[in-house]
Lab assay of single mutants.
Amino acid sequence: MQIFVKTLTGKTITSEVEPSDTIENVKAKIQDKEGIPPDQQRLIFAGKQLEDGRTLSDYNIQKESTLHLVLR
């Protein structure tokens, strides 16, 4: 499924993921596309910071959901 990751600069990254993918996994995909190390990434969805060990389905993230990427 496709999800969108919006950066603070307003850029939107499209990523191909599975509901069973972990947040860590998603951060790795963002690193592949943007070159941002996962340890600098914080992903936010519905006002919550997403934890690395959890999966997209844990957070009820569905296709075409938009996550927000904040850098630390």
Rank of each mutant, 00 (worst) to 15 (best):
P37Q: 06
S20N: 12
K6R: 10
I44C: 12
A46P: 01
K63F: 07
K11C: 11
F4E: 03
H68N: 08
I61P: 01
E16D: 12
E18P: 03
A46R: 14
V70N: 05
P38A: 15
P38E: 08
S57D: 09
D21V: 03
P37S: 08
S57F: 10
S15G: 06
D39S: 12
K6M: 10
S57T: 09
K63M: 10
K27V: 04
K29L: 11
I3K: 00
Q49R: 09
T12M: 12
Y59A: 02
S20I: 06
Q62W: 06
G53S: 11
K11Q: 09
K11I: 10
S65G: 06
Q62Y: 09
L69C: 02
S20F: 11
R54D: 04
T22D: 02
I23G: 00
T7G: 06
Q41S: 06
K11N: 07
G10T: 02
K11R: 11
D52R: 04
E16L: 14
T14S: 10
K6P: 02
K63A: 15
G35F: 04
E34V: 15
G47T: 04
M1A: 03
K6Y: 06
K33G: 06
Q2A: 08
P37T: 06
R54H: 11
G10Y: 03
S20P: 03
H68D: 08
S57K: 12
L56M: 05
V26M: 05
G47D: 06
V17K: 00
F45N: 02
S65I: 04
Q31T: 10
E24M: 13
T55V: 06
G10C: 07
D32M: 13
D32V: 13
R54Y: 13
I23R: 00
K29R: 10
V5Q: 00
V17R: 00
P19V: 08
K27A: 03
A28G: 10
F45G: 02
I44D: 04
L56E: 00
T22R: 07
K29N: 06
V17Q: 05
S15I: 15
V5L: 08
T9E: 12
L50S: 00
A46N: 15
D58H: 10
D52W: 03
Q2C: 10
A28T: 10
K6D: 04
V26K: 00
R54T: 06
V26Y: 00
N25Y: 11
S20V: 05
F45E: 01
E18C: 11
K48S: 08
Q41H: 06
E34H: 11
E24R: 14
Q62T: 13
L50H: 01
K11D: 08
V26S: 00
Q40M: 12
A28P: 01
T7M: 15
T9Y: 14
K63E: 12
E51M: 10
A28D: 06
T12I: 15
K11M: 10
I44G: 02
V70H: 09
N60L: 06
D52A: 06
T7W: 13
T66I: 13
Q2I: 15
Q41W: 10
Q41K: 03
D39R: 11
R54M: 12
I36V: 08
Q62C: 05
Y59M: 03
V70Q: 09
A28L: 14
L67F: 03
V5C: 03
L43R: 00
D39Y: 13
S15E: 13
L56Q: 00
D39T: 10
P38H: 12
F45T: 01
T14N: 06
A46C: 10
F4T: 07
E24P: 02
K63G: 13
T12P: 03
E34Q: 07
F45V: 03
R42Q: 12
P19L: 09
N25K: 14
Q2D: 05
R54C: 11
R54E: 04
N25T: 14
P38I: 15
E64R: 08
R42G: 07
I61V: 08
D39G: 11
H68S: 07
T66H: 15
F45K: 03
L43P: 01
D21S: 08
F4N: 06
V70I: 13
P37R: 09
E18D: 12
D39M: 09
K63H: 15
Q2W: 11
D52F: 04
I61T: 01
E18Y: 15
Q31F: 15
D32H: 11
A46S: 08
L50M: 07
I36S: 04
P19E: 07
R42W: 11
K48Q: 13
I23S: 02
K29T: 07
V70E: 11
R42S: 11
T9L: 11
M1C: 04
G47F: 04
D52N: 11
R72M: 14
D21Y: 08
D58K: 02
Q40A: 10
E34A: 14
I13D: 00
L67T: 00
D21H: 05
I61E: 01
D39C: 12
T7V: 09
G10I: 02
P38Y: 12
D39P: 07
E64N: 15
I30A: 02
K33A: 13
I23W: 02
K29F: 11
K29H: 07
N60Q: 08
E34T: 15
I61L: 03
G47V: 02
T7H: 07
E64F: 14
N25R: 14
Q62H: 10
L69H: 01
I36A: 04
L67W: 00
E34P: 03
E51Q: 10
S65C: 04
T55I: 06
P37I: 05
R42L: 14
G35T: 03
R42V: 15
E18M: 13
K33F: 08
D32K: 13
V26W: 00
T9P: 05
T9N: 13
S65E: 07
Q2R: 15
L69I: 05
R54P: 04
V26C: 01
I44N: 05
Q40V: 10
I44F: 15
L69P: 00
K27Q: 03
K63Q: 12
T66Y: 07
R72G: 11
L8K: 10
P19M: 09
V70A: 07
Q2Y: 13
T22V: 05
Q41V: 12
Q31N: 10
I30K: 00
F4P: 01
S20Y: 11
D58G: 03
T66S: 05
E18K: 14
G47Y: 04
V26R: 01
R42Y: 13
T7N: 06
T22G: 03
K33L: 14
S57G: 10
K33E: 09
R42K: 12
T9D: 14
L71S: 08
Q49D: 14
I3Y: 00
N60C: 07
Q62M: 11
R54Q: 07
A28S: 11
S57A: 14
D39I: 10
L56R: 00
S65A: 12
K48Y: 09
T12V: 14
V17S: 03
I23Q: 00
T55Q: 07
Q62G: 13
G53H: 14
F4L: 06
I36F: 11
H68E: 11
K6S: 06
P38R: 14
I44A: 05
D21K: 01
I44M: 12
E51W: 06
N25D: 12
T55L: 08
Q31K: 09
D39Q: 11
V5D: 02
K11T: 08
E51Y: 06
I30P: 01
V5S: 01
K48H: 11
E64I: 02
H68V: 13
S57W: 08
L67H: 00
I13V: 06
D52L: 05
T9S: 13
T55W: 03
Q62I: 13
T7C: 14
S65V: 07
I23L: 04
T9R: 11
N60E: 07
K33C: 07
Q49Y: 14
I61K: 02
Q40K: 11
V26L: 14
E34D: 06
L67C: 15
H68G: 04
